[in-house]
Design a protein around this nucleic acid. Structure first.
Length: 339
DNA sequence: CTGCCGAA
DNA sequence: TTCGGCAGG
């Protein structure tokens, strides 16, 4: 499983798509997830992230600017959903992750001292802070894209917006959006392109993929609530799951016993707060306070922020800002703007 | 991750 | 024109 979220990939059918299949569609992207991915992927060869002259991390800004502009240019409209307050029962998971990152940071130091390749430790030590979040938000706004503030989990808010039909897809790297009830989830939107195979020096193309919740549930013959229970058994952002229970075993148990209460009673087992966690997935805190629309990008703000404050190359940034402006301009003159 | 530049 | 490798901040 990834560091974030439940891995239900082996239970649910994934449909490979191309970016152009998403042209004209709105995708609500989990901002934290995306920033984290850029931060861990965009690195120098020794594992150091990109930084300005003051040592402030800029990897995420590079990823956001170039990747998002390409998506927008391909006609994919993206809204970024930022996390609000984490539920209290997430504290344990967050503490565990923090410890993992501390260990990775230490391993990175060791590898560097020994003159070895510490890239994977550097990646694992990636840590989002409030400055990274705020810088990301600032750039997204300057690019004219919607920023939505979730009251709680961003994935939950994105799922809600997709369920309401205000966006077409929830975009995330993990499967939590499905547990939160997103009808359509698109994965690999931020990392499409090439991905390095572990321990090998070869790269494979990673195409985006779509998962349809309703179809997935029908194929498995289970309800949404049961899928949530499977997730909880495997472990989620909010609990560590049952010993030696993965997606396949969890599905089997659900089919046999029907619900998590019966499974736990049968095993004489327990999961802390499981009713609360299940309720959180089924009815998470969300807000209607959002507007999904492309605004005019502000090239001067993009340039002054990235070039003057973060030491980006003026030519590259100006060129990219112009591309964004051009997409907005041509979008204004087409009819689909009115729908 | 992406852009860019030089080699083929 | 395409491709691979390197730099980006």
């Amino acid at each position: 499983m990834t560091i974030m979220g439940v891995d239900l990939g082996e239970l649910l059918k994934r449909k490979q798509i191309e970016i152009k299949d998403l042209s004209g569609r709105w995708v609500a992207i989990d901002a934290f997830n995306t920033l984290y991915q850029f931060l861990s992927i965009i690195r120098q060869r020794d594992g150091t992230p990109l930084m300005d002259r003051q040592g402030r991390v800029t990897s995420h800004l590079s990823g956001l600017l170039y990747r998002t502009t390409n998506l927008i240019e391909a006609g994919v409209k993206v809204a970024f959903v930022f996390d609000g307050e984490a539920p209290t029962f997430k504290a344990v998971t967050l503490a565990e992750r923090s410890e993992i990152r501390d260990k990775a940071a230490w391993a990175w130091e060791e590898a560097r001292a020994a003159g070895e390749d510490g890239f994977k430790y550097a990646q694992a030590a990636s840590r989002i802070n409030s400055e990274i979040i705020e810088d990301g938000r600032r750039l997204i706004l300057a690019m004219g894209l919607p920023v939505i503030q979730a009251p709680s989990e961003g994935e939950a808010q994105a799922a809600y917006m997709a369920a309401r039909g205000d966006v077409d897809y929830a975009g995330s790297q993990d499967y939590d959006s499905l547990l939160f009830g997103a009808p359509l989830v698109v994965r690999n939107l931020a990392i499409t392109g090439k991905r390095k195979l572990p321990r090998k020096n070869i790269y494979v193309d990673v195409e985006p993929e779509v998962i349809n919740l309703e179809v997935g549930l029908a194929n498995l013959g289970i309800t949404h609530k049961q899928l949530v229970e499977i997730g909880i058994m495997c472990g989620t952002d909010f609990n560590s799951g049952l010993e030696r229970v993965g997606p396949k075993t969890a599905l089997k148990l659900i089919r046999e016993k029907g619900d998590l209460e019966s499974i736990l009673a049968d095993r004489d087992d327990k999961i802390e707060d499981f009713e609360k966690i299940r309720e959180f997935f089924l009815h998470p805190p969300v807000t209607d306070d959002y507007k999904i629309a492309l605004k005019k990008p502000v090239p001067e703000e993009i340039v002054s922020f990235l070039v003057d404050e973060r030491d980006f190359d003026p030519e590259r940034v100006e060129k990219t800002a112009k591309r964004l402006e051009e997409v907005y301009r041509s979008g204004q003159s087409t009819l689909d703007h009115w729908f």
